[in-house]
Nucleic acid binder design. Structure first.
Lengths: 341, 341
DNA sequence: ATTGGCACTCACCACGACGGAGTGCCAGAG
DNA sequence: CTCTGGCACTCCGTCGTGGTGAGTGCCAAT
């Protein structure tokens, strides 16, 4: 009985604190929420909640503020899924449907997500590891230089300049193009890399010998290099301005992190699939300096295959239910678009 | 005589204010710079400078602060070119030399520039308007869908998905590819667009009729669309954290501007070439809200052809000589790289 | 034209008083 | 055993107060 009410109190505290950004006291609580008990009772509950570590008071005789542990409990057990408004849904779909290519999809996603959550949004470009090679194109740029273009099943296009040690011959180039495509097209990129390596080792007598190696290297480089060096898009940094207070403690380290894409990737964490949204609260994350920020993320990809991750970062004091549904919705929608492509 | 000293005083004020970020008084001035006159004299000079609008005092009986007009005079007449240190030069060259393709060059430039100036750096991707079409590739993705890849002389690659109204035939595709390349390759993109439009109008009897139009449209779209929607890279936003004070007045609007690439492009302004660095100070710029920020920019491109612009944005109170040389140096270096490619 | 002197002006800081929100505890009621 | 009303206490934030010091403007002297 009392246990239930205590949780209700915690929920109320979190909601009020998120809304007002100010420590919330017992009196204000019973006024704003119809808990059906008196402030004194709430005070007792709050004392217990504080003992258990779910809330603290910044100073004696100030209201209470949720701790990381409090937010955790709130997220795990107290959130009621809040559906998106029709207007929001339409906004997402119309905005994302206008995308012309994969890059555009990602960039638009960042935009919608940051606008929807009024937070900093981060979207990882779909990982290549599971994608396959659609086509390889070799284009002569100069007598001894060509451009290798790699087209992947996700629609992503990678390019590499290749310098040769001998002048190009159109016929040889055509031959090489044919062979490379025969070897790589349709393969998952991991397999394509090994297959190509084989192709690179031509008997020195073959007219291909001079060209094959550098081209193969460039392609393999583009593939494997790209797999680890995963790109991401960031948007909504202007929302950081809303922090107002706590500039040094929260905004500065976050601004720094936003430029370090490696950090961001680690922050987003492992992609989870199937509509599961991961929430990492404050110090639960891997970075000391970001102990005042939370991450709400989820995986996305065709067939809900979690090719990549998207999410938002924001202050621990954030609207978790709203953010979670927004993240989930955008992930779903992007996944569906990738399905179609 | 006095006129000269007054300018020296202005220079000293600007330098001190930039260094200390605090209003500078007459006594401190004569101590830090060997002006050879007494504080009282300096005070008289400062009174004149204030009358002429080059400096102001934030409050009565506080030190003086340069006005926009003061910075302008400083930049136009009082800056002594400050060469970069050898270490800095080497840092720029080694960092930029590692770039693998055009995108990488741009991204690395942003990084170096922001680190060098400790300011927010902005680099516009080379404009396409003067670049020529190197090659067009058409790749079948599905029976009724193909990917059009546009390769330009700058090394940039654009892609567009094309949906067809009839199933693809390999021969027709090859024919189309050939024709498109014959029409477009080597042309400046403006010309390529008109030439392609002609190609799009096939007699309905031709087997090409069904395919040509959508493909041509996609390509023309990619070209003309891209010309206006110019991309830019931004870096060093973390340096905004150094503003510390004046958060609302300076950081917030700037953060907002950084996401609006259109705004940034306008801010960078027209590309200037030939080593000329443009400085726009505070309210001289086109945006009311950015009246506390200055822009230092210059054009760059192969043969110093000002294909695009790069620069930094920062507080009006910034180290103009240092920033100008850094911007100039990076622009030179990037131009040289583009020359080679 | 420059300088030293002098009175004046404020921003800034430290100090202390005070009001108010909020708490913890206790005794009484259900 | 749980809830409630009352009460004393704590402490943050704010506001006025006065002192301090950097800096100025003006003036008479050099």
């Amino acid at each position: 009985m009392q246990e239930e009410r205590r949780l209700a109190v915690l929920r109320a505290i979190v909601e009020d604190y998120v809304a007002t950004e100010e420590p919330v006291g017992s009196k204000a609580l019973v006024e704003r929420h119809s808990l059906g008990v008196s402030p004194a009772t709430v005070r007792n509950d709050m004392a217990v909640l504080e003992d258990e570590g779910y809330i603290t008071q910044p100073h004696t005789s100030a209201g209470r503020v949720p701790t990381d542990k409090g937010y955790r409990l709130f997220v795990d057990r107290l959130t009621t899924v809040k559906p998106m408004s029709v207007a929001e849904k339409r906004a997402v779909s119309t905005f994302l449907d206008g995308a012309v290519d994969l890059d555009d999809v990602v960039q638009r996603s960042v935009r919608v997500l940051s606008q929807l959550t009024r937070q900093v949004a981060v979207v990882q470009y779909p990982t290549l590891s599971r994608s396959t090679v659609r086509h390889v194109e070799l284009v002569a740029l100069a007598p001894r230089r060509l451009l290798a273009v790699l087209i992947l099943s996700t629609g992503r296009v990678e390019q590499r300049l290749v310098d040769l040690e001998a002048d190009l011959d159109d016929d040889v180039l055509a031959d090489l193009r044919l062979r490379v495509n025969q070897t790589a097209t349709g393969q998952v990129i991991a397999d394509a890399v090994t297959a190509l390596r084989g192709l690179g080792e031509q008997p020195p007598t073959s007219p291909l010998a001079v060209y094959a190696a550098p081209v193969v290297n460039a392609l393999a480089d583009a593939m494997s290099d790209y797999r680890s060096d995963e790109r991401i898009a960031v948007g909504g940094a202007a929302n950081l301005a809303r922090y107002g207070d706590s500039f040094d403690s929260a905004v500065r380290p976050l601004l720094e992190a936003l430029e370090e894409h490696v950090v961001l990737l680690k922050l987003l964490g492992e992609a989870t699939s199937g509509g599961m949204v991961t929430v990492r609260i404050g110090a639960e994350g891997p970075y000391e300096q970001l102990s005042a920020t939370s991450v709400v993320a989820t995986g996305y990809g065709p067939q809900d295959d979690a090719l990549a991750t998207l999410g938002v970062v924001g202050p621990t004091r954030m609207d978790y239910p709203g953010t979670m549904t927004a993240v989930r919705a955008v992930a779903r929608y992007v996944s569906r678009i990738l399905d179609e492509a």
